[in-house]
Design a protein around this nucleic acid. Structure first.
Lengths: 226, 226
DNA sequence: CATCTTCTTTACGCTCCCTTTACGCCTTCC
DNA sequence: GGAAGGCGTAAAGGGAGCGTAAAGAAGATG
């Protein structure tokens, strides 16, 4: 949940921004002038700063420079001034984007996502947990009771396919097509062998599977349990 | 000298862009349609991509997605369309900025500088520790048990790439592309040799690696241990 | 120009994993 | 009750991928 610092002197704009940002799943901090904003940027460590250039106490451009003195936090500028000179100055002082008022909420939210994205790519862990097994799709790691499990390439590819659709029944054909390719949609022998190998490694009692269960005549299913 | 790929079908705009960019100290590559652009983005490894959404062969939005399939290169969109929906789609597909035509050169150049400015990426710490090995990414120094290790240039580049994504499985192709360049994504012999050399220097028992582990058929992984 | 380091390339043995086959049990349908 | 097919399990053969050493090529250094 990224934390966003909004610096704007008009209360209704702050309110409007807060509502929009919270609705998009962000945590919001507010500051009503430049000095407060600089202080908050330092002490609260936000993930993003949205700054209105028209502030009562300080020039907005000065605020950018002040924040950049000791932080690389992304900055999106809001401003009524559309002159090129203002944009260039703000961007060169370290702002990452410059949006001219009035603007659409959807666009601003998209720009927020865009500017937060680089860290979101690898930071968003896709982890599927079931029983004492934990499947980390991004890192390509499986742990059981905290300890790393070693899976072969095919074993992982199969488990990954299950983990991307937990609790869904996957047919033999679907699985074979995804893991072994469309030329092997009838080689159910592969499945029998590899499902068994996975069970040996994942299940408490491989003969009485609780996680990777058979759907007779149809396929298999990875059950989510806690 | 950053390299910028300009994708635009109008020759005079490409010429105009090239002049402006070269004057600001950039190297410029050009493509006149989407297919060429995607190919160039893959083979030429630009540092920035400037893309006109109105192309003759492909939808510009498709080009963004295609490029993002195997690259994180920054993308600035140029477009005559000012509708919010277009902006949101482009940004959500992975573009970093969206500039509506007509635009001022000074502003575009400022946005180019902004997007190329090195940003601190959360998660990639400056110092990575694992086992008795300490990798200082900023100082470019590796120590083991407090003592400095001497690494050759390629050895360091390889270890640095691992250290920037510890605990993640990195595929052969990813590593080769990053360290030896996109022309050598199939030369896994390099990897075998250099991973072995790193293990000789980093591991307690190079034959039983605990830090730099093999993921058979996939790639390698730098494990964080304590 | 000589020497040393580093990068690239080749070769070989070995390990592990994919594939394939076989067999026994269970369920289901005649 | 018998037969047939789906499923679980074990094991073997073959091959691809990996580790390792070592030598030639290229570059750096004095």
């Amino acid at each position: 949940m990224p934390r966003i610092l909004v610096i704007d002197d008009e209360p209704q704009i702050r309110k409007f921004m807060r509502i929009s940002l919270v609705a998009n799943g962000y945590e919001v901090i507010e500051a009503e002038n430049g000095a407060q904003g600089i202080e908050a940027a330092r002490s609260q460590v936000p993930d993003l700063l949205i700054l209105d250039l028209g502030l009562p106490d300080l020039d907005g451009q000065e605020v950018i420079s002040a924040v950049r003195e000791d932080s690389d936090v992304p900055i999106i500028i809001l401003s009524v001034r559309a002159q090129e000179l203002d944009k260039v100055e703000a961007l060169d002082r370290g702002a990452n984007d410059y949006v001219v008022k009035p603007f659409g909420v959807a666009e601003l939210m998209a720009r927020v996502r865009a500017v937060l994205r680089p860290r979101a790519v690898k930071g968003s862990d896709e982890v599927v947990k079931t029983g004492d097994v934990c499947i980390d799709l991004a890192r390509r790691v499986v742990t059981r009771g905290g300890e790393d499990l070693h899976l072969s390439k095919k074993e992982w590819e199969l488990l990954e396919f299950f983990a991307r659709s937990p609790d869904y029944v996957l047919t033999h054909k679907e699985i074979l097509k995804a893991v072994w390719g469309p030329a092997h949609t009838d080689d159910t022998a592969y499945l029998r062998v590899y499902v068994n190998q996975l069970r040996q490694k994942l299940e408490v009692d491989p003969a009485q599977p609780l996680l990777l269960v058979t759907e007779p005549g149809v396929g298999y299913r990875l059950k989510r349990r806690d």
